[in-house]
Structure formats: structure tokens, C-alpha cells
Amino acid sequence: MTRTVGYARELLSVEVAREDAAALRRAGASRVYIDRRDAATGRRNEFERCLSSLGKGDTLLVASAVSLSPSVEHFITTIAQLRARGIKVRSLAEPALSTVPDTIANPGDVLDALDAMRRRLIGLRTREGLDAAIAAGRRPGRPRVMTEERIEIARELRAQKRSFAQIGRALGVSESAVRRALNPATAQVKNE
């Protein structure tokens, strides 16, 4: 007897993983394995359980190829290993990456889907890095050129009727950086 087994991985939030699991059940998965986000170990115990439960003729159903693999290379290797075992893969979000007979796609669609997967993985890693920086108390992104000390000096120079361009040259920053730092609307947004 062949089965359809689902696999989902918590990528950004628990809610998204739950939504993926519900979509997999609606699409016919008899059982859904879900890996929780664990940045400390990076282990995917449920993924290993899912793979070991699959037999010849079964179908592995995923909401997206991104939940199946952390890289495009890993995805291709996993698909090859599953095909060698006689297991089909079906992706709800990327039908072109499915190996079930009724979803055969042309090579261009497959390459487009792999490229979209690569871009989404980059976005997920960027989001994870930003979340880690925030959790560590760091402010992610480009550092500000107008420090509190420079803003104070700029205020003093502005009180002396200096132009924004002159202040920028004196501080070694752009005129627009000085304007943004001294703009009352910008300062009000920062304080809220």
C-alpha cells in the first residue's frame, strides 16, 4: 500500500509551520512530520524519521521545496536519493520540482523553480541573521553616520547659521545626512 507522507519545517514561525501542515493534510498526507526551529543544533530529527518511514511507491509531500532542504544542492541530492529508493516527491508550491508522474515539467520551469528556491533560501538566511542580531542586542543594518556627538555639533553649527553643506563638510558626512539628523520630524519618529 502506498502512502502520502507530509513534511514541514518551521522556517520563520510556528504559525507558518502549522499552516503548511494543514495544507499538507488537505492535499492528502496521511501523516505530517514537523521539525521545530532549532538554530542551536540544526538537527532535523523529524526529517530523519520521515525519510525512514517512507517505502517504495510512497510520496513525500512538502508545502515548499524550501522546507525540505536548506540548500539547492541538498534538495537535488535528496531528490536523487529518494528516487533511487522508489519514492516520489511532490511540492505544493513548486509543481515543477515534483517527481510524481502527473506533474512532469519542462526543463525551463524546473530551472526557474530551483532559482526561486535559491532566492527564498537566501531571504530566509538573511531573516535568521537579522533575528539573531536583534536577539543579541545588536542593531542590524548599516551603522548610522550621525552619532549623538555629531548631531550635537551639527546643532551648534546650525545655531551659528551654518549651511547644511558646510556642516556636512565639517563633520565628514553628506549634506542629506545632516538634514535628516536635524529634521524635527525625523527626531520625533526616532523618539517614539
Rank of each mutant, 00 (worst) to 15 (best):
V5T: 07
V5I: 15
Y7F: 13
R9G: 01
L11F: 01
V14S: 08
E15S: 11
E15I: 07
E19M: 12
D20S: 14
A22H: 00
A23D: 09
L24P: 07
R31Y: 03
A40Q: 12
N45C: 06
R49T: 02
C50K: 01
L51Q: 03
L61I: 10
V62G: 00
A63V: 08
A65Q: 04
V66M: 00
S67R: 15
L68W: 08
S71A: 05
Q81K: 13
V89C: 03
R90A: 10
S91T: 14
P95C: 04
A96F: 11
T99L: 05
V100I: 15
A105S: 14
N106M: 05
V110P: 00
A113M: 10
A116N: 10
R118G: 09
T126R: 11
A133Y: 08
G137Y: 02
E149D: 14
I151Y: 02
E152C: 05
A154F: 10
A159H: 05
A159I: 03
K161W: 10
S163Q: 13
F164R: 13
A165D: 13
I167A: 06
R169G: 01
S174P: 04
S174Q: 06
V178H: 09
R179F: 08
A181P: 13
T186W: 14
T186A: 11
A187M: 15
V189T: 10
E192H: 11
